[in-house]
């Protein structure tokens, strides 16, 4: 976090407070339309959330102005985005390509991208895991995972 300009008093906590107020306000507009007693608890919880978010922002600004350093949000930004991107792509792939195909790609790709390059171990783990899942879930439990693209 920069220590000049807005970064002097702003922090990730304050950002989360602003997001919470925005989301709560949006949901509140929905909750206010709920009939009778159904809307009572949602409205109460959302108003409380907004009030708490304001307290969170005020508290974080006060701590920053008192000299508390902002903590880094990520352990390692680049590695986080690669991991998050992989999982965000993997899930739609399960639907599009099928569970087994997607997992066969995900496991070696992830370990390779994150620096583990022992091909024998990667291959054995991938085959062992995918094979085990296939045996347990498809053959024994007859689970209906999204079908593999080449079997449709």
């Amino acid at each position: 976090m920069k220590s000049d300009g807005i970064g002097r008093f702003w922090s990730a906590d304050a950002t989360s407070g602003v997001v919470l107020i925005g989301v709560s306000a949006y949901l509140l507009s929905d909750a206010l339309k709920m009939p009778g007693v159904s809307g009572m608890l949602p409205v109460f919880m959302l108003v409380l959330s907004m009030a708490l978010a304001v307290i969170l922002i005020a508290g974080s600004i006060r701590r920053r102005l008192n000299g508390q350093a902002a903590k880094a949000f990520f352990h390692d930004r680049k590695r986080f985005f690669i991991a998050a991107a992989l999982v965000c792509v993997y899930i739609p792939c399960v639907e599009i390509l099928g569970f087994y195909t997607s997992s066969t790609i995900l496991i070696p790709l992830t370990s390779w991208l994150f620096g583990y390059r022992n091909i024998k171990v990667i291959a054995a783990t991938t085959l062992g895991f995918v094979g085990g899942m296939l045996a347990i879930f498809t053959l024994v439990m007859s689970a209906n995972f999204p079908a593999e693209f080449f079997l449709r």
């Binding site: 399960v94 997992s103 496991i107 370990s111």
Partner: peptide, 24 residues
């Protein structure tokens, strides 16, 4: 290796949650 455990856990999570209602 943690690099192998991460994707395996993710795959297990997908299987487990999918199995609840067989719903993506």
């Amino acid at each position: 290796p943690r690099q192998l455990l991460g994707p395996i856990i993710m795959a297990l999570m997908v299987v487990g949650v999918f199995m609840i209602h067989e719903s993506m």
